[in-house]
Amino acid sequence: MDEDMLARIEADPRYHRLTKARTRLAWLLTAIMLGAFFSFTALVAFNKELLAAPIGAGVTSLGIPIGFGLILLAILLTAIYVRQANGAFDRLTQEIIAGAEA
C-alpha cells in the first residue's frame, strides 16, 4: 500500500466508523465469552455443590444445563459476530476500498 492510499483511508470517516464499531463488538463478545467461561470455571473451583445440585426431584444436576448452555453460547456469539461482520461491516469495507482506489 502506498502512502497516498494510507492517507486517504485514514482520512475517511467511514474507516474510523468501521474499526470503532467492529473493535467494540469484538471486545464486547470476547468479554461475554471470557466472563461466562471463567464464571463457570469459578463455579467448578469454588462451588461444586451448586453445579452438583439436582434440578427438582431427578438426578440431572444444575451443572448440565449450565455446561450445555456454555457450549450453545459459544456458537451463538460466533454467529452474531459473523452476521454483523459479513453483513454491515463488509459493505462498509467495500465502500472504503472503493473510495480509496478512486
Binding site: A26, T30, M33, A74
Partner: peptide, 8 residues
C-alpha cells in the same frame, strides 16, 4: 471456548 476468541 477458544474458537469464539479466535474469531473476535
Amino acid at each position: 471456548v477458544g474458537w469464539p476468541i479466535i474469531l473476535f
